[in-house]
Amino acid sequence: MNTVSGFKYAWMRLIAMAWSDKDVMKRLLNASSADVRNAFKSLADFEVPDDMHIIIYNPKRYNPDDIEKSIREVIFKNEPRSLSDLQGGGPKDDKDPKEDFTWGWDGGLKSWLLPSAIVLLPMPPPPEHKEADQGRDLNQDAMALAAYQWIGRALPLSCC
């Protein structure tokens, strides 16, 4: 189910798992793009497209510098900067992409060279429970997850 709605359900599944298992939460929040891709596949049976990178972050500890660093790492380590890079598997150095990248339309080749999509997903914090010593209230978690989906935050994009 590798569709937009499939992505939504996979993301909801990962959120539910993260809320119920602190190790999953930690794994997702500290993951590289490749690790997030693996988590979507292994935990939610969804294959993230090769030309998409996902960064999951904690909105309570949001730091724009950390997000920018993560994005730059994705670009430096994964993105081709020219057709020869594209054919050869990616860039060979850590130059600043603003200085060196040749992204755009190549009329001679009649082809685009563009960076992959980078999707930033805020991991919603789990709902707080009044009776902490009784464990998670699954009814409240289910309602919170449904409300998260209902407000439109479950997808980083929308289609009409």
Rank of each mutant, 00 (worst) to 15 (best):
39 A>H: 02
40 F>P: 00
46 F>V: 06
47 E>I: 11
51 D>C: 02
56 I>Y: 03
57 Y>W: 02
59 P>T: 06
59 P>Y: 07
59 P>A: 08
60 K>I: 10
60 K>C: 11
63 N>M: 08
67 I>S: 03
71 I>S: 04
76 F>H: 10
77 K>Y: 07
77 K>W: 03
78 N>Q: 05
81 R>W: 08
83 L>N: 02
85 D>N: 09
86 L>K: 15
90 G>R: 06
93 D>S: 13
93 D>I: 10
94 D>W: 09
95 K>S: 13
97 P>E: 01
97 P>N: 06
99 E>R: 12
101 F>I: 15
103 W>N: 09
104 G>N: 13
107 G>S: 13
112 W>K: 12
112 W>T: 07
113 L>G: 05
113 L>M: 09
114 L>N: 08
115 P>I: 03
117 A>N: 09
117 A>G: 10
121 L>R: 11
124 P>V: 01
125 P>H: 15
126 P>C: 14
126 P>L: 09
127 P>Q: 02
127 P>F: 01
128 E>W: 05
130 K>Y: 09
131 E>F: 14
131 E>A: 15
131 E>S: 10
131 E>P: 02
132 A>L: 13
132 A>Q: 07
134 Q>V: 14
134 Q>C: 13
137 D>F: 11
140 Q>K: 13
141 D>E: 15
141 D>I: 08
142 A>P: 00
